[in-house]
Write a protein that binds this DNA or RNA. Structure first.
Lengths: 142, 142
DNA sequence: TATTGTTATACTCTATAACTATA
DNA sequence: TATAGTTATAGAGTATAACAATA
């Protein structure tokens, strides 16, 4: 018998590709992760952002580069420490985040509508669990 | 109130990055998708593989290139139709698939072990639903 | 002509190693 | 010296447009 973890892995890949296929022109999950975090938690150091989003620091530098180029975030030097870069979301970034989340959510909801109500309830109950799963080790690691 | 779809999107990104972080040297979800499909369903046309994995045909050509280079799959020309390329998984590919799935599954199971039993049951119940979600529109599209 | 797949090209996302600037 | 971030470089993964080969 396969464990829950082993069954989750293949499904993850399919879900990600499904979203990409349906909304090819949407901001990526990487972009959404950063914009969402900045929207929820406010301006953050670049390194802090890298840790929270499970990326390397150079990787986050590059992602923030692209987002800044596209006007979705803004870099500001920290007044307290000249080494530190604070990243904040712009109004355009906030709008892009909200719009994209709504759009992708609707696409998924459309598919969900094709499932029995009991299935939808199962998924509903599991969403907080999946979320908790992603937070678990972050707390341990600090 | 946010819909299930809207809540699923951010979680997906975090889960993918979590796996990448914990098992940086593992085959990617794209690789696993192809190897898994070939393992389950046997040799397939390249175009068929592209459709099933929600990739473009050139994208699948390139992915198969890398997998063949790494000895995980093999290309064979179709005897019936000279345009067609059949892709099959090698023994090494089958082994890599099984090993990776087990490893990633164990990593997720470790985290799952930190959750209450009720949460684990919720997730268990939702896994077939997520799987059904990814299959829904494929059937519609054909 | 239509279908199947590849080539050419370009972009995002990601990492590691080496570097710079500040503390 | 240690920390925060960037630059250099490389590779996976992906797409669209143009092409070649076969039917």
């Amino acid at each position: 018998m396969e464990t829950a973890g082993g069954r989750l892995v293949p499904v993850l890949g399919q879900l990600v590709r499904l979203l990409r296929e349906d909304a090819a022109d949407s901001p990526s999950l990487a972009t959404l992760g950063v914009l969402g975090r900045l929207t929820r938690d406010g301006a953050q150091r670049l390194g802090e952002l890298a840790r929270a989003e499970r990326a390397s620091q150079p990787g986050m530098t590059q992602l923030v580069d692209r987002l800044a180029r596209d006007g979705l975030v803004r870099r500001t030097p920290s007044p307290d420490d000249g080494r530190v870069v604070l990243v904040e979301v712009t109004a355009a970034g906030r709008a892009a985040y909200a719009d994209t989340l709504r759009r992708l959510g609707e696409l998924l909801d459309l598919r969900l509508a094709g499932l029995p109500a009991a299935d939808r309830h199962s998924l509903d109950a599991a969403l907080p669990v999946l979320d908790a799963l992603t937070r678990l080790d972050l707390e341990v690691a600090r």
